[in-house]
Amino acid sequence: FLEDVKAQAKGELQASESRYQAQRRVTLALQTELLQLYSRLETEESSATASA
């Protein structure tokens, strides 16, 4: 019976952890995207300054 309780808890924890891990992957993807956008923005701004 004790094993049963443990197994159940493990099942729930695994699902919860998988949800957490997905958030972490989302964070990474967002950061990559943001980084790219910032560098694009900088290029655009410097070229705008140069042409002004």
């Binding site: 197994a7 159940q8 099942g11 699902a15 998988s18």
Partner: peptide
């Protein structure tokens, strides 16, 4: 879904949230 039926409601909620979190982020990106 885990073998324990009384965890199904909770785990299903986690599964829904996980999918919505990721698809929401993909929309934002």
């Amino acid at each position: 879904l885990p073998p324990h039926s009384d965890s199904h409601a909770l785990v299903s909620r986690y599964r829904v949230e996980q999918f919505e979190d990721v698809s929401g982020a993909l929309t934002a990106m």
